[in-house]
Each structure stands twice: as structure tokens, then as C-alpha cells.
Amino acid sequence: MSTPILVPQLGNEITEAEVTEWLKSPGDAIEQGELIAVITTTKMSMEIEAPASGTLGAIVVPEGELAEVGATLATIE
């Protein structure tokens, strides 16, 4: 089973965010709730927690790129 890591809804005016840092690499074992990435909006930076335990799959949005709210950043296998 695979769980997508999504850009969360960050308030009704924020439509996109930048992935500023991946704290894990593909293949890393991940616990649910662990911090896996930092994203930044126009106003703030926030940490993304793993929605499930497993292994980090392919990264869809690399560091420095933008993603819309709701987009998949990576998956957990």
C-alpha cells in the first residue's frame, strides 16, 4: 500500500508552497509522525510529518520547487 504525502491546506489564501528541505531520502525507513520535509509559503515555514509508517518512495517535488496545495510531494510505501 502507498500513502501520498500531500501539501496541506494552509489557510484559505495560500495556494502553493515551496519544498525547502527534504529531511529524508528515498528508501529511508519512516515512522508515522516523524518530520520528513520543510515547506515554505509566502508567510511561513512549516514541517511536514509522515502520515504513515513505511519507506519513503520516490520524491515527486524536489527541493526548491513549488507545489500546489493538495499536490503529492512523495509517497510512503
Binding site: E18, T20, E21, V38, T40, S45, G64
Partner: peptide
């Protein structure tokens, strides 16, 4: 700093 780098891009 990542947020500072972001502005530079």
C-alpha cells in the same frame, strides 16, 4: 537559510 534562499530564486 532556506527561506532566504527562496527569495533569491
Amino acid at each position: 537559510s532556506a527561506p532566504i534562499r527562496q527569495i533569491a530564486r
